[in-house]
Simulated assay, not measured.
Amino acid sequence: MSTVQDGRGGDVRDTLAGTHEERLLAVLHARLVARAQDEGLLDVAYRVVDSPVGRVLVAAGDAGVLRVAFEVQGHDAVLDDLAARVSPRVLEGGDRLDPVLRQLDEYFTGSRTSFDVPVDLRLARGLRRDVVEALPRIAYGTTASYTQVAAAVGRPAAVRAVATACALNPVPLLVPCHRVVRSDGSTGRYVGGDEAKRTLLALERTPLVSGAPEA
């Protein structure tokens, strides 16, 4: 009996079997995550999704979104940090992230200007937290300088510290550190990469899709 090839020298039956096994593993993993969540054993759920600024990791605990991380930050390193600083009970998947992923998709397609999902800022402390909490006041489609943000948090001389706080913002995109620029109007650096920052600022200069929630 002849063997059907899959174009790469492999047996098509092997490919189909592999696909079936992948689906089965996905189903089993989904059940594991759901059970862990139901039994209170899932402290951090995460998913990695595609976006116009590359693959983005989003992680959330019971109190809200803990981390948003770009691929250039190293997703494995981010997960290791979450396991060390929040809980080792970290799993991929689950429905906890559905609302924030939906809102991110709406933002990237130009139909959302602000986010209303819960955010857990436990990973930002001291002045860094003050800065992160102030950033949402920079309206969609506008920018503020590092100097202006320093003044807004009552630390006008702490411009460098503000820049560091923006670089270490645990939830970029949701908390818009990309809207902070240099005093001369140049974009400055960005945790997701300079091109990602330019992309986000350009996105926010594009006319909104009708019906977008206002910031």
Score class of each variant (00 low, 15 high):
Val48Leu: 02
Gly18Cys: 01
Arg55Asn: 15
Pro118Val: 09
Val119Ile: 15
Ala152Trp: 13
Asp81Arg: 13
Asp98Phe: 01
Gly40Lys: 08
Ala144Ile: 06
Thr206Ala: 11
Tyr140Met: 02
Ala202His: 07
Val209Ser: 05
Val68Leu: 10
Leu101Ser: 06
Ala167His: 14
Val4Gly: 00
Leu127Glu: 07
Gln103Pro: 04
Val86Trp: 08
Val132Met: 04
Ile138Pro: 00
Leu42Tyr: 02
Gly61Trp: 07
Glu71Ser: 09
Leu79Asn: 06
Val131Gln: 09
Gly18Val: 03
Gly185Gln: 07
Glu39Phe: 02
Ala144Met: 09
Asp130Ser: 14
Glu39Ala: 09
Tyr107Gln: 05
Val162Ile: 11
Leu101Tyr: 11
His20Arg: 15
Val100Tyr: 06
Ser210Pro: 09
Gly141Ser: 07
Cys177Gln: 13
Arg112Phe: 11
Ser111Asn: 12
Arg160Trp: 07
Val72Arg: 02
Asp116His: 11
Gly9Leu: 04
Gly61Val: 06
Asp50Ile: 00
Val180Arg: 01
Arg35Pro: 01
Val209Leu: 12
Leu200Trp: 11
Ala63Leu: 08
Ala60Trp: 02
Asp105Tyr: 05
Tyr107Thr: 01
Thr142Arg: 15
Pro52His: 09
Ala144Tyr: 05
Leu97Pro: 03
Leu173Cys: 08
Val175Glu: 01
Ile138Tyr: 01
Arg89Ala: 14
Val49Pro: 04
Pro207Ala: 01
Ala69Thr: 10
Leu135Ser: 07
Val56Leu: 15
Pro176Phe: 12
Gly40Pro: 08
Thr3Tyr: 12
Gly110Pro: 13
Val117Cys: 11
His29Phe: 02
Leu127His: 03
Leu173Glu: 07
Arg198Ala: 15
Ser210Gln: 15
